[in-house]
């Protein structure tokens, strides 16, 4: 039975609530796994919740102008927007979101919308590290977008559609139908781009803890920081769900969704704990090298 538009909005809120909590727990558990790799006990899994409550409960906060406040708003809008146009669980009414309203191109746009908004807001903060972080972030974004876009083009060409629901539907029926099995080159290019998108260790040039500590959000504090932290969870969840849908056959129930997204996110930690950070120029050259060639090859395979 098709729910009314009010019902769908209600479902979307539930879905958003679930992905927020899932994203926060994911960040917390990955921090704990990283700690285990380093031989530490690590922070509690629920630490992100406490941090958000703490940040939001700060008694005073400062602003640097209208754009400064709009930065986190755009970022949050980017995160929520990305998630809202992806089906989190294929075939589920509750987790369908508004995936029939937008297609893959809209989602790709939303992924970068938040970063651009953040760039404007952080720029108004006036801190030099913000500006350096933003320019580094945008440069790296331009670079990793090439293999990612090529990989998406390969997927779209392979299935002959930009509709995410149709792409997931085409991958149903077992592992042999996943993009991972039918076009592994596209998956490789996309996963490498995903490492850059997440900003974990080899590609953490944006927040670069040793040179430009924390980067763009240097001036953000209190409830604005709370918003950014919440968005990090939503945005992570949205990207993971998108990757799962495009390359790993989607999910037909929430358990499959959790397992698959956890494993995709785990790639980040796996790589991040093993490699030191690249410099900005190295990172950009890397993305424009082998991953781009792999992406081109995946498009050729898909078209042939």
């Amino acid at each position: 039975m098709e729910p009314t538009i009010i019902g769908r909005i209600g479902y979307a809120f539930v879905s958003l609530f679930v992905i927020t909590n899932y994203g926060l727990l994911l960040i917390g558990s990955m921090a704990r796994i990283s700690a285990k790799v380093q031989g530490r006990v690590g922070q509690p899994v629920w630490q992100p919740y406490i941090d958000i409550v703490k940040s939001s409960a700060k008694r005073n906060s400062i602003g640097h102008g209208a754009m400064f406040y709009l930065g986190p708003v755009f970022r949050l809008a980017g995160g929520v927007g990305t998630y809202m146009f992806i089906p989190a669980v294929f075939g589920s009414v509750l987790f369908r979101n508004f995936s029939d309203s937008g297609d893959l191109l809209l989602v790709m746009y939303f992924i970068f919308f938040g970063q651009l908004g953040m760039a404007l807001g952080a720029g108004e903060g006036g801190h030099p590290y913000s500006a350096i972080g933003v320019s580094r972030g945008l440069a790296q974004m331009t670079a990793f977008e090439v293999p990612f876009a090529l990989s998406v083009i390969a997927v779209a060409a392979q299935y002959g559609t930009l509709d995410i629901n149709a792409i997931v539907a085409a991958q149903q029926g077992g592992f042999a139908h996943w993009t991972l099995a039918t076009n592994p080159l596209a998956v490789i290019a996309a996963i490498v781009a995903f490492l850059g998108m997440s900003g974990h260790n080899p590609f953490s040039v944006v927040i670069a803890p040793q040179e430009i500590p924390i980067g763009p959000p240097t001036e953000y504090q209190s409830n604005l920081l709370g918003m950014l932290q919440t968005n990090r969870a939503i945005f992570n969840g949205a990207k993971l769900v998108l990757y799962m849908n495009l390359y790993f056959g989607g999910a037909t129930n929430i358990v499959a969704m959790v397992i698959k997204t956890f494993l995709i996110y785990f790639v980040n930690v796996f790589v991040g704990q093993a490699f030191p950070r690249l410099r900005t120029d190295q990172s950009i050259r890397f993305f424009l090298g082998a991953p781009t060639l792999v992406g081109i090859a995946s498009v050729i395979i898909a078209v042939i």
């Binding site: 031989g39 690590g42 509690p44 240097t218 953000y220």
Partner: peptide
């Protein structure tokens, strides 16, 4: 470091005064 590991008490370093408490 892993020997003392302040993260388990919810303590972590923050590079900017705006975000630290």
């Amino acid at each position: 470091t892993s020997r003392f590991d302040m993260y388990r008490y919810g303590i972590q370093p923050r590079p900017t005064p705006r975000q630290s408490s």
